[in-house]
């Protein structure tokens, strides 16, 4: 599961949604994988304004990955005048699109419930006592 996905996931338990501590989910015992995919600079540039940058920084540091800049990179920092992708954009592509969690757990910071990730797929089905 590519790391970009975690910016759009939270706890499946209804009572957690209004609790800010439920986002982002925290990876535990995460085994990472790299899956090469074609870089699409426009795609990265377009989705960046929709990202919760603080959540992404938290995730990246919890996974022990290289630290991200304090603020969201500006358009000029992503593409040179010639439209070429900058190193910043290339790094973001690797982090968001190519780096994924192959296995481990995702933990809710509000209720502590853990969701398993196996073979790159997270399972958010709840046990019947939590539905």
């Amino acid at each position: 599961m590519k790391l970009l996905t975690l910016n759009f996931l939270t706890c499946a338990i209804k009572t957690c949604k209004s609790n800010p501590a439920s986002f982002p989910l925290h990876p535990k015992d995460a085994e990472l994988e790299q899956i090469e995919i074609d870089m699409n600079p426009i795609f990265i540039r377009n989705i960046l304004p929709r990202l919760d940058w603080v959540a992404l920084k938290t995730l990246s540091s919890e996974l022990g990955l290289a630290s991200l800049p304090e603020d969201v990179p500006t358009e000029e920092e992503l593409m040179g005048e010639d439209g070429e992708a900058t190193q910043t954009l290339k790094d973001l592509h690797v982090l968001l699109m190519e780096t994924g969690i192959a296995s481990g757990r995702l933990c809710c910071g509000a209720c502590g419930h853990e969701y398993a990730v196996k073979e790159g797929i997270a399972n958010f089905l709840l046990p019947s006592h939590l539905v």
């Binding site: 996905t5 939270t10 499946a12 986002f23 797929i121 997270a122 958010f124 089905l125």
Partner: peptide, 27 residues
């Protein structure tokens, strides 16, 4: 889970196993 495994091949998108009545997404 078996359908999600098939769906996971569609880049650049992402997939997860979840129930429509308990979605793991921000409101």
């Amino acid at each position: 889970h078996n359908l999600v495994k098939i769906a996971s091949q569609h880049q650049p998108h992402a997939v997860a196993v979840a129930d429509i009545l308990d979605l793991p997404h921000q409101v």
